[in-house]
């Protein structure tokens, strides 16, 4: 490397600007709220299966729904997919989902006992 450009792994020096500080504070709040929400959703999922009061017919789609919410939170909050400059990863992930859902859904129907 040497004379060619900066060393990207060098530690940062100096204080962040006011704007950056505000941004970091906001992000911290979002992260904490999402963290609490994640724990809450996970316990909801656990309770709906562990408790006998909730029928299985309701619990199964319910925990699938919770799982979807958690995946989205995970991707967008904890893995920062919502930040600027992530347009392509977003596009590719959603294209994959768009292709996979009809494929898997119709595959399940086609492999079933019922002939459509």
């Amino acid at each position: 490397m040497g004379q060619h450009g900066m060393d990207p792994s060098a530690p940062l020096t100096g204080k962040p600007s006011k704007k950056t500080q505000r941004k970091l504070r906001n992000e911290m709040r979002t992260q904490l709220i999402s963290f609490v929400l994640m724990i809450f959703l996970t316990s909801m999922a656990f309770i709906s299966i562990a408790s006998d009061a909730i029928p299985t017919g309701f619990a199964m789609p319910f925990i699938l729904l919770l799982a979807v919410i958690q995946v989205i939170l995970q991707l967008y909050v904890f893995m920062h997919l919502n930040e600027r400059g992530n347009g392509w990863p977003n596009a590719m992930i959603w294209t994959g989902v768009l292709v996979a859902i009809p494929t898997v859904a119709s595959l399940m129907l086609l492999l079933g006992i019922v002939k459509w």
Partner: peptide, 9 residues
Amino acid sequence: FTVGMGPVA
């Protein structure tokens, strides 16, 4: 098509 998936599929 000839595997027997059914008419709708």
